[in-house]
């Protein structure tokens, strides 16, 4: 097992380590020289270093990304499903092609080249619009060159702009991948809405467009929910791939923090502690899954109310028996 407090920590400290850790934020006053600390005080200092703060903040990044990606992917899914049901053949092929191709490729493979392709695609479009007089080829060998004002974001923009841009590229990529799965689920759900409900709408004289928006759209969610819930669970578990998209996520920090550290480069040397960090991640994911399960069960219950499904029926019966 891994020693929690390696004994060689204090003795083998390298003189230059003090200089290199220039800005050590001392949350607790006694943290100014961790080499003399031991046990709990040492741990309290260790767990509040700037690097650990970045680690904690990355949990927020992941949660934020999930919160933004889920609705975006749903939107893509809706678009894909509608395209796949379209009467216009070209649109239908596009919808079905999107679902089939993106679902057929492992998400890692997709992430590994798609982000760069997306980034270059955006810059190429901007390049065409903003620098029409540019004569040199955009692609020179393996280099990709556009004029300066077409860069996304501009290379002179502050770092936070780059970060926000990177975050949105990640969101967009996730949304495209999970949108394809959502489209598949929603396509099935639209087919599952009982025919008589749609026929009734037609009998009332609704146009196909009205039928779609006023009846099919509100009614399909209960059929889509089991599939979407599972998709949400998969999405949660795909977040460790975020580091491929250049977002420094919890796995990135856990790997870096857990790796064994020598006294030369840190005031807190330790052995291979990756196990503990990954254990923390495991607990995080399990808790998050559990909470999601509970919330989704509630939503299902709420959506089932008054629906022509077994669950809705039993809710109706129960409500009747209590009055």
């Amino acid at each position: 097992m891994l020693p929690l407090f390696p004994t060689w920590r204090a003795t083998l400290r390298h003189p230059s380590a003090l200089e290199t850790t220039r800005k050590r934020p001392a949350i607790f006053a006694y943290c100014s020289d961790p080499s003399v600390l031991d046990g709990l005080p040492w741990l309290s200092c260790y767990l509040t270093t700037g690097k650990h703060m970045a680690f904690y903040a990355s949990f927020g990044t992941v949660l934020l990304l999930l919160a933004v990606t889920a609705p975006t992917a749903l939107l893509f899914g809706l678009g894909g499903a509608m395209a796949a049901r379209a009467r216009f053949a070209l649109l239908r092929w596009f919808g079905k092609g999107y679902i089939a191709i993106v679902r057929g490729v492992p998400d890692i493979a997709f992430f590994l080249f798609f982000v760069i392709a997306l980034d270059q695609g955006i810059e190429w479009l901007r390049h065409k619009v903003k620098c029409p007089d540019w004569t040199e080829p955009v692609r020179q060998g393996s280099e990709f060159l556009v004029c300066d004002i077409a860069k996304m974001p501009l290379s002179s923009s502050p770092q936070w702009v780059h970060e926000v841009y990177g975050f949105w590229v990640a969101v967009f990529t996730f949304a495209i991948v999970f949108g394809a799965f959502a489209a598949n689920v929603l396509f099935g759900a639209m087919q599952a809405v009982p025919r008589p409900q749609l026929e009734t709408a037609e009998a009332y004289g609704m146009s196909p467009r009205q039928t779609f928006w006023r009846v099919l759209m509100p009614q399909m969610w209960i059929y889509a929910l089991p599939g979407l819930s599972n998709l949400w669970m998969v999405l949660i578990k795909a977040t460790p791939l975020l580091f491929l998209l250049g977002v420094e996520d919890i796995v990135y920090w856990a790997r870096d923090l857990g790796a064994s550290k020598t006294a030369r480069f840190t005031a807190y040397p330790h052995g291979d502690w990756r196990m503990w960090y990954f254990l923390a991640l495991l607990v995080f994911y399990l808790l998050f899954t559990r909470v999601s399960e509970v919330v989704l069960a509630r939503i299902t219950k709420r959506l089932s109310r008054g629906q022509a499904t077994l669950d809705g029926e039993s809710q109706r019966k129960n409500a009747g028996s209590t009055t």
Partner: peptide
């Protein structure tokens, strides 16, 4: 089922190898 469905495969590989 909860343990294996609730955690990323990535982390399962790590612990498996360990």
């Amino acid at each position: 089922i909860f343990l294996f469905r609730g955690s990323p495969l990535f982390i399962q590989f790590f612990f498996g190898y360990f």
